[in-house]
């Protein structure tokens, strides 16, 4: 792999992160050989995808079954007004490829289901949950657990964002913290302010890179909450729970 891989991939492009001892040339090669699956290319997935592409993650999988609507553009910055009515994975794939042609992008214009998730997840090294609903978040947690795939969970509400990194079987998972689906909400969605998922999606990209290269402390066993109104970050310790429907810690 590797000298070639790096020379082909324009070393100058990555010079600034290669200069970090935690990354270096070896880390860059690892990134170029890594595969990350992004579920959702909206408010969270746009910034996460941009930063992963910019960093030179070799393969980015994009999963989203939606087409772009005008009300998305206030926060979903991978798309443009010209993309309205088109599948989001297409415009996101174009945006990320334009930023960094080294990155191979697999665009999956489909809705994630319990049937297709495990097969997809197996093809990647790390999964980013950038979805916008409870059901998908639980589905991703379950499928990642089933195939032993690490993932970054995140969710947004108005001015609040939260995120947790999970190594299935080793660290607290989404279901250790939230064991039941919250009751359905029939009110029209409020928010978020677009920059809030921008902050959290960027953290998800950082976590993916840290996991893939094995440096720093991951956001495991800690649920990070970002409150943009108070401008506060809080990290709440969470441990694996013996009654977790996925982990069943003995």
């Amino acid at each position: 792999m590797s000298v070639e891989l790096l020379s082909k991939a324009q070393p100058q492009r990555y010079a600034r992160q290669i200069s970090l001892p935690e990354i270096g040339e070896d880390g860059q090669k690892k990134m170029l050989a890594s595969r990350v699956l992004l579920i959702g290319v909206g408010g969270l997935g746009s910034p996460a995808g941009y930063y992963l592409a910019a960093a030179g993650i070799g393969t980015l999988g994009l999963v989203d079954g939606d087409v772009l609507e005008l009300s998305n553009l206030q926060r979903q910055i991978a798309h443009t007004t010209a993309d309205l009515g088109r599948p989001k994975v297409e415009s996101a794939a174009r945006a990320f490829a334009a930023l960094n042609p080294d990155v191979r992008i697999n665009a999956h214009n489909l809705r994630l289901t319990a049937e297709n998730a495990p097969g997809l997840f197996k093809e990647y090294d790390f999964v980013i949950d950038a979805t916008d609903n409870f059901e998908s978040k639980f589905l991703i947690a379950g499928a990642c657990h089933a195939v032993g795939k690490p993932y970054s969970h995140a969710g947004i509400l108005k001015f609040i964002g939260q995120t947790l990194t999970v190594i299935p079987g080793k660290t607290a998972c989404l279901r250790c913290v939230f064991d039941e689906l919250p009751p359905g909400n029939k009110e029209p969605p409020q928010g978020p302010l677009g920059a809030v998922p921008g902050v959290i999606g960027t953290i998800q990209a950082t976590e993916a890179i840290k996991y893939l290269l094995g440096f720093g402390n991951l956001l495991t066993n800690r649920l990070l909450t970002y409150d943009a109104l108070r401008l506060e970050f809080r990290s709440v310790r969470v441990n694996r729970r013996s009654a977790c429907p996925l982990c069943r810690v003995v």
Partner: peptide, 30 residues
């Protein structure tokens, strides 16, 4: 005190001096 209290366990817990409680709700948007 760093322990997630499942819904079925809520009735078993009594709060005492010095306890730390965090109230979390799942944010569903993205």
């Amino acid at each position: 005190n760093d322990e997630v209290i499942g819904r079925q366990k809520v009735g078993d817990v009594v709060l005492r001096e010095g306890d730390r409680i965090e109230l979390l709700s799942l944010a569903g948007g993205g």
